[in-house]
């Protein structure tokens, strides 16, 4: 009885699935899904390597400082960095007076209890990067976590910054309706191919204090490295803590295995 009941229940689910499968297959076979421009022309991030890659990688502080320079002089006009405090910049090699000077270049909104007004004051090291009032359309995302919030974060940012191009003729031929609308810019590394941000980097936009030539490629790489850091400033510490712990665990596990062999030595199992 129980067996018959279970077979009936089983048939209920399997027949329902077979029904879904059959109709789904029919639709799929008769009306194949139309390819879309995104599907055909979206590209995965370029291969690019950063000093912080891999289990042994550590941040290149010189590069992070260059990246910060690019952020401050280019990106900061539209993109905030709300999870990062100025004091954090000491971790990429700036000393205390330098951090104070950087902080003072930013205006921080402060609520004044006495007057009930929000006034802006010069930043101090304990302040966080201030919100950015963006007057244009859409709201540019906060960049603190951008490299963690995108697949293959660092290479994605780098590819996006260096990936602007004219829409391929091939695309327009097959998908005339996917023509980039006015006010948007074509970039195959962006998920839906068109984004509101124009190409932000131009040759020699920034004068690096360490004399590195500021090519678009260099700036894109540096700012991507900086944004990998802002997403996880503790990454170096994480990896440096990991190795001794893994080493110790390996040692302890070998001891544990030897002890296990010992205890079971006279016991066949």
């Amino acid at each position: 009885m129980a067996r018959i009941l279970s077979i009936l229940v089983g048939l209920f689910f399997t027949v329902a699935l077979a029904w879904s499968l059959g109709l789904g297959f029919y639709t799929w076979a008769t009306e194949p899904a139309q390819p879309t421009a995104e599907h055909e022309f979206h590209e995965h991030p370029k291969h690019v390597s950063f000093a912080s890659d891999g289990p042994f990688g550590t941040f290149d502080k010189q590069q992070l400082q260059r990246g910060f320079q690019v952020y401050q002089q280019v990106c900061a006009a539209c993109h905030a960095l709300k999870h990062v405090a100025f004091r954090d910049l000491e971790k990429i090699g700036y000393n205390e007076p330098e951090v104070k000077a950087i902080a003072a270049q930013f205006q921080i909104p402060k609520y004044d209890e006495m007057t009930g007004m929000v006034e802006t004051v010069e930043g101090t090291p304990t302040d966080y990067f201030p919100p950015v009032m963006y007057a244009g359309q859409g709201s540019p995302p906060d960049l603190s976590l951008i490299t963690k919030a995108r697949h293959d974060g660092g290479p994605y940012v780098y590819s996006l910054l260096t990936g602007y191009q004219d829409q391929p003729a091939e695309l327009l031929k097959h998908f005339p309706e996917a023509k980039t609308p006015d006010g948007l810019y074509y970039n195959p590394y962006f998920p839906n191919l068109n984004l509101a941000m124009p190409a932000p980097l131009m040759e020699d936009m920034v004068t690096y204090s360490d004399g590195t030539p500021a090519t678009v490629d260099q700036m894109a790489k540096d700012v991507s490295a900086f944004l990998i850091w802002t997403a996880e400033p503790t990454m170096d510490k994480r990896k440096q803590t990991g190795w001794p712990i893994l080493g110790f665990l390996l040692f302890a596990t070998i001891l544990g295995y030897m002890s296990y062999r010992n205890i079971w030595a006279n016991k066949k199992h």
Partner: peptide
Amino acid sequence: INVAAVSA
């Protein structure tokens, strides 16, 4: 070995 394993 047993003592060492427990100590670890």
